[in-house]
Design a protein around this nucleic acid. Sequence first.
DNA 1: GATGAATGAGGCTTCATTCAT
DNA 2: CATGAATGAAGCCTCATTCAT
Lengths: 188, 188, 188, 188
Amino acid sequence: MLPAEVRVDDLMTAAADLFIAKGIEATTVNDIVELAGVGKGTFYHYFATKEDVILALRERFSRDFTKKVADALAQCPGDDHRARFATWLRGTVEAYIANYELHDVVFHEFRHSNRNSKEKEIVIAQLSALLGEGAKADAWSLPDVRAAAIAIYDGMHGVVDDAIATGNGDAGAICDRLSLLFGRILVA
Amino acid sequence: MLPAEVRVDDLMTAAADLFIAKGIEATTVNDIVELAGVGKGTFYHYFATKEDVILALRERFSRDFTKKVADALAQCPGDDHRARFATWLRGTVEAYIANYELHDVVFHEFRHSNRNSKEKEIVIAQLSALLGEGAKADAWSLPDVRAAAIAIYDGMHGVVDDAIATGNGDAGAICDRLSLLFGRILVA
Amino acid sequence: MLPAEVRVDDLMTAAADLFIAKGIEATTVNDIVELAGVGKGTFYHYFATKEDVILALRERFSRDFTKKVADALAQCPGDDHRARFATWLRGTVEAYIANYELHDVVFHEFRHSNRNSKEKEIVIAQLSALLGEGAKADAWSLPDVRAAAIAIYDGMHGVVDDAIATGNGDAGAICDRLSLLFGRILVA
Amino acid sequence: MLPAEVRVDDLMTAAADLFIAKGIEATTVNDIVELAGVGKGTFYHYFATKEDVILALRERFSRDFTKKVADALAQCPGDDHRARFATWLRGTVEAYIANYELHDVVFHEFRHSNRNSKEKEIVIAQLSALLGEGAKADAWSLPDVRAAAIAIYDGMHGVVDDAIATGNGDAGAICDRLSLLFGRILVA
DNA sequence: GATGAATGAGGCTTCATTCAT
DNA sequence: CATGAATGAAGCCTCATTCAT
């Protein structure tokens, strides 16, 4: 009888590992509890359904992701907007590379008819704010901040995915390439 | 006893409608044959497995998509690279808006652990070629054509998704916004 | 691949036997298909849920029951109302004795919040008609035909149950006792 | 930490309410403790199993029921047998109407293969005694006291059920109708 | 006394696929 | 060609009960 948090965490981690390894559908609740080393009832003590773990994983992922980037940004002088963008890009790429497998599985493989998830919205809001501040301070001009944020975010995803797929998974190189690309968008 | 093609088409269309409405997993072969108005055995006459329909749907979607854009490009003078890009963008956005629901379901919901599908590769190749030609003709310069193609393509997807989600699904307005954005990337 | 009716019947009979022997709750769908000698899927080919068999059993029971009594009554001169009541009583008691186990299980053990089932209503209507005709022909008088029908029907059930429980399960003797009792109700 | 009796009573009442509302099977021990506002362990302090509550509920119901009728009868002169029967009828109908939902659930829905419960036997014995005394005193004659008691008791149940179902749940009117009916049985 | 986390056996149901007609 | 009855493996989930705190 450990504290509830420990169990929940064990179960979520076990689930994440299996989802990554075998996919969501192929992973059974049995697999999860076996790997977590608890009884099946325990799973349902903490999660109402199998879907629930996925949702919890999503939230945990987003929370971690957003926090990591926010922490990095906090280290950055508030008025050097280009540096802030570079920091955002670096943090985002690194966080994504570190966990893209879980990201894939949890955000793409499982979509219960929610095209634009709350989670993505948070990330977009974070980037939009950064871009908006830069625009306000005339570090760059942007006719449509939100569209730019989305294009940059999804563009980043695509390029990183491609880098991973083609084996060029080095965060530094990817960031350089993306900086060049997105630098063109962030002009006066 | 209609010609086989008609049957196949009926089944694919029924499947597509159901996949969009209920998702792939929730759609059973029973649902499909019922909507198509044929017996269950007929399904297995034309498709080896349920997966097969999805694959067929993917191919049909890609074929249509690529063809539509290629046709539009064919109308365009080969040396006006900016116009060609505008044409590509317009065609792509329109085709995507017209069928994004099927696109979602068939390309995202079903991923047999294939991060970069053959189909996406074709589209990227098409755009890369266009961008490469423009670069070669000095219409613009591009340090990394493939990265630019991917970023533009995925960026476009994200912005269109957002436009649809927020109810601004007008192709013209979206293209204008995207032209402004991507125009910045395509500079000398 | 036998005709559908055969399978349905096999399954219903197997279910009935098991319900009687072990009770509804204790009987699993597995038990049923095993006894019926079919695959588990076959069960769900014909019945949507386990409850469905119970409902089907109810209807079959009622249909048989009503028909048996109606047939017996058809043999009876339409104007000898006392004889008709005796016939009804005899038929009802016999049919009930022959199948009270199934009756118990199917009508009492399983009640999905339906106090007065459609099935009972049919039987009551049948008896009410008989009593009403007798009253109209002055074979007896009855201030409240429906109440009398219900009291007689449920009273019969109770007495037969008691006879069965105490081992006096002889239909003839039971009918004699009941005739005496109910004869008092059916007076001018 | 209330006195044990209070706890037991809270649990029984919670259970009764839920059994009535959702049925016995559908009611979980969790539901019960939640409604009672106690921990799950507490339930098992006072009841060995879930069945135990049902049994306890049965006994409480029967005790209350029998007592109520016995009290009413005690007010009645011992030699006015018709009045005594009328009192019995009135008390029984009223008690039943007041609690028929619990009665249903506790006596019908849960039957551990006990067709004739000990509890019913008590009630029948009570009525049999009353009828027997009347017969001995020549207030009426009865060839089979037990059969009459059962028929009257079950007949009463049926008629009251019907009255409730058809919305004529007035105890007075029901008793009038039943008096007329059963009065015919209780003749010299 | 009171709690509620932990359990695990076992039930119901789904559904892709086959194949005799 | 077309059908749909038959299958059975496999999954999700329930819930009464226990027991360490």
